[in-house]
Amino acid sequence: MFWSVTQSLLDGLWTSFEIFIFTLLFSLPLGLILSFGAMSRWKILRGLVQTLVWIIRGTPLMLQLIIIFYGPGLWLGHNIWNGSESGRITATVVAFSINYACYFSVIFRGGIEGVPVGQREAGEVLGMTKSQIFFKVTLLQMIKRVVPPMSNEVITLVKDTSLARIIAAYELTFAGYSFMKSSGITWPLFYTGVFYLIFVGILTLLFNYIERRLDYFR
């Protein structure tokens, strides 16, 4: 029994991991683009981005996921995600990427605006080019500011992957839950918790390492 549970949970973990990785892959650059939009000189663009962020942060991720998975099928008459497991995962990644991009955009914006203008000006009077100022002066300071709030969001993302169960994607929590349902046993639920703890534990170590590496300056 233990091995079959482990096997199932590993399957679920893999799905959760896919959602996690692909969401990061898409939401990080998208978040950066949104943060530029939010700081744009163009008022309309700024307004659009702010409205999007307000809507996405103001509604539950689960609701967004349901709308994105079922919406197209009901509006267009055919399901663009196809009913397979990979379709469910894709829909989840899309919903999550939009959601997390909005959260990341706020963090990035804080990081970018948090670097004092004096840093850029000091670079300018020293004859540096715009790109030299960005890469040699401001970038690392932004990263340093952004890492702690990012680590919070990334750890939340690990646990949010369990929301994919609502559209029947076979992720980690679903895997643990199905044993309780089918065999009436509860220990797989705790075992599932251990999987999350290890996942989050590794990320925590990673972020601690990054923070320590950036600790040499203030």
Binding site: E121, V125, V137
Partner: peptide, 21 residues
Amino acid sequence: LRRKRLHFGMVFQSFNLFPQY
């Protein structure tokens, strides 16, 4: 502009040193 700037040096009230260096 960059070359012209180099005729002048600037010491700021708040130093503006680069913290990571």
